[in-house]
């Protein structure tokens, strides 16, 4: 099993009055070469979960299997650096981690830490910056002087330049404008399709889940409630209604059209089918 959680518990500040059980007996297997969304209300343990993937946190109980590594609390977890090179983690609001004098140097910081040569690191960093849509004119500017959205791109490029096999992103689009968010999500899809990267995205945006992801993991109060394919999740069964999160816009449109008397199948998954169905309804009248 390439990425799997087995009976993983995680407790913050154990044996103190501040003890907090963030993950409760998580059993989860994540498919490689897919885009998996992790959703759930705030405080449900999403961020704690993803920090296990590159061993920033080690489970209090249980085992995490990732690529060819095995992480648990009752063994010495050595050489985490090589794992971190293969699993890139982009934190929430990563723009706060920028510190170098120039953008190019900041992006090169990661690759150089992982012992790439200067030339190689520069090449990879330029590629990564191009991917996130920042051209040469940015290379020599200070990462602290650009806009918030651009900072976000630089920070993500900083992880992309390391060229990890698994890319984990904690709310990468939070606070971005819709256009910026869209191009960011499209970049992740491209990374997945073209470079066969495994991608995990923590998100609150159900539209992104529906439009860009393959699988979805729903968390609540430190537990995994369900783990399904995105299409099954939205169009089969009722789990999507039980989790009390806002539906994607497309589904809300269908929902309100049905309320107004349109005879539409609530399980229409394809935009084209939906358009056709609406057209049919209108021409009937």
């Amino acid at each position: 099993m390439p990425i799997a959680f087995e009976k993983v518990n995680y407790i913050y500040a154990p044996k103190t009055p501040f003890q907090y059980e963030a993950l409760k007996c998580i059993d989860l297997a994540i498919e490689l070469n897919k885009i998996t969304a992790i959703i759930g209300p705030t405080g449900s343990g999403k961020s704690t979960l993803v920090q296990h993937l590159n061993a920033l946190l080690v489970p209090t109980d249980g085992t995490v299997y990732i690529l060819d590594r095995e992480l648990s609390s009752n063994q010495k977890n050595k050489d985490l650096k090589s794992l971190r090179q293969r699993v890139g983690l982009v934190f929430q609001f990563p723009e706060y981690q920028l510190f170098e004098e120039t953008i190019l140097k900041d992006v090169m910081f990661g690759p150089l830490n992982f012992k790439m040569t200067e030339e190689d690191a520069r090449q990879k960093s330029m590629t990564a910056l191009t991917m996130v849509g920042l051209d040469e004119s940015f290379y020599e500017r200070s990462p602290l002087d650009i806009s918030g959205g651009q900072k976000r791109r630089v920070a993500i490029a900083g992880i992309l330049a390391i060229n990890p096999d698994v890319l984990v992103l904690d709310e990468p689009t939070a606070g971005l404008d819709p256009q910026g968010a869209k191009s960011m999500m499209e970049l992740f899809v491209e990374l997945n399709r073209k470079y066969k990267k495994t991608i995990l995205i923590v998100t609150h945006d159900m539209d992104h889940v529906l439009n860009y992801c393959d699988n979805v993991v729903v968390m609540k109060k430190g537990e995994v409630i369900t783990h399904q394919q995105v299409n099954d999740f939205f169009f089969k069964g009722d789990t999507v209604k039980e989790i009390e999160m806002a539906l994607p816009q497309r589904l809300r449109v269908v929902e309100s059209l049905r309320e107004k008397g349109f005879k539409l199948d609530s399980k229409i998954s394809n935009l084209k089918d939906l358009a056709n169905a609406i057209k049919k309804e209108i021409s009937h009248e």
Binding site: R84, Q85, V90, N113
Partner: peptide, 16 residues
């Protein structure tokens, strides 16, 4: 909290 967060973020970028 902030220090912890940045430490983790930089650890993800290979800082040891």
């Amino acid at each position: 909290d902030e220090t912890n967060r940045i430490m983790k973020a930089q650890a993800s970028r290979g800082v040891d």
